[in-house]
Simulated scan of single mutants.
Amino acid sequence: MSPSLTERAIEAVRMAIRNGTMVPGELYTVNQLATELGVSRSPARDALLRLEETGVIKFERYRGFRLQLPGPEDLAQIFAVRVALEIPAARKAAACASDKQIAELKAVAEALRKAAMADEEPEFMLHDQKLHGLVLDFAGNQYARKVIDNIRDATRLVGASTFQNFRTLVEVYQEHVPIVDGVAARDPEAASAAMYQHLRHTGGLLLQKSIGLDRPNVQAESERLWNQFAEFATIPSPGQ
């Protein structure tokens, strides 16, 4: 089944967020979006209404809409969802993935490595999202992937990238290696532990950036928010 005009409009907005074509702070109109997408006003507005539910945009009455920056508490709650969905997905993917699926995961990881080595951030981000999406797919829950895709777009608006301030693309790639290795080795505990470490590190850095790197006690505040919202979502392994 081909995607509806509304679904195509949603994906176009999400892609514009990912590649930086649409940025926080700038005012956009529904008519402007419809013209750029080559669709009528109705599917463009329907797409925006659905994106508003995810917190990605905010309407301004009679004016248009802006991309919505998530605050520190929003980010902590977003990562609570990611922890709750992606850790068990990594565990299940390691237990259930077929040889063909593992080969596909390794291919995406290799594309991620090449983008990191070439310092191609937009391409890297697309492969990063695809890698996480495959893990969710292998776990057999298509709705989990849709949820994660939506909320990852919101985190991208924080500056999405923790790269310039905290770490290189190669360092981020290296965080993904043990996830892929755990799935490939069919080791559920290794895969889920690696996923948690990656999410915990990324979430902590984004929280610090959202709070403000020049704020006193930024690291302590980041830890407090993580513990308040995200840590409860950590799902222990069966042996714990």
Rank of each mutant, 00 (worst) to 15 (best):
Ala34Ile: 08
Ala34Arg: 09
Ala34Asn: 13
Ala34Phe: 13
Ala34Val: 15
Thr35Cys: 12
Leu37Phe: 06
Leu37Tyr: 08
Gly38Ala: 03
Ser40Lys: 14
Ser40Asp: 14
Ser40His: 15
Arg41Phe: 13
Arg41Val: 15
Ser42Arg: 14
Pro43Leu: 04
Pro43His: 05
Pro43Glu: 06
Pro43Ala: 09
Pro43Gln: 01
Ala44Gln: 13
Ala44Lys: 11
Arg45His: 11
Arg45Asn: 12
Arg45Ser: 12
Asp46Met: 09
Asp46Pro: 01
Ala47Lys: 07
Ala47Glu: 08
Ala47Thr: 03
Leu48Gly: 04
Leu48Pro: 01
Leu51Thr: 12
Glu53Pro: 02
Glu53Arg: 15
Thr54Arg: 03
Gly55Lys: 02
Gly55Ala: 05
Val56Ala: 10
Val56Glu: 05
Ile57Cys: 11
Ile57Thr: 07
Ile57Leu: 09
Ile57Gly: 08
Lys58Gly: 14
Lys58Met: 11
Phe59Trp: 01
Glu60Phe: 08
Glu60Ala: 15
Arg61Lys: 05
Arg61Glu: 14
Arg63Pro: 00
Gly64Asp: 03
Phe65Asn: 07
Arg66Pro: 07
Gln68Arg: 14
Gln68Leu: 13
Pro70Gly: 00
Gly71Glu: 01
Pro72Arg: 04
Pro72Ser: 04
Glu73Cys: 03
Asp74Val: 08
Leu75Cys: 01
Leu75Val: 08
Ala76Trp: 03
Ala76Thr: 00
Ile78Thr: 07
Val81Ile: 15
Val81Cys: 15
Arg82Gly: 00
Arg82Leu: 06
Arg82Gln: 04
Ala84Met: 03
Ala84Val: 01
Leu85Lys: 04
Leu85Tyr: 00
Leu85Phe: 01
Ile87Lys: 09
Pro88Thr: 04
Pro88Ile: 02
Pro88Met: 05
Ala89Pro: 13
Ala89Ser: 15
Ala90Gln: 03
Ala90Leu: 03
Arg91Asp: 04
Arg91Gln: 11
Arg91Cys: 06
Ala93Tyr: 07
Ala93Leu: 09
Ala95Pro: 06
Ala95Leu: 03
Ala97Lys: 10
Ala97Asn: 05
Lys100Gln: 15
Gln101Lys: 09
Gln101Met: 10
Ala103Phe: 09
Glu104Gly: 12
Glu104Cys: 10
Glu104Arg: 11
Leu105Ser: 03
Leu105Trp: 01
Leu105Ile: 02
Leu105Gln: 00
Lys106Gln: 07
Val108Gly: 11
Val108Glu: 14
Ala109Trp: 15
Ala109Leu: 15
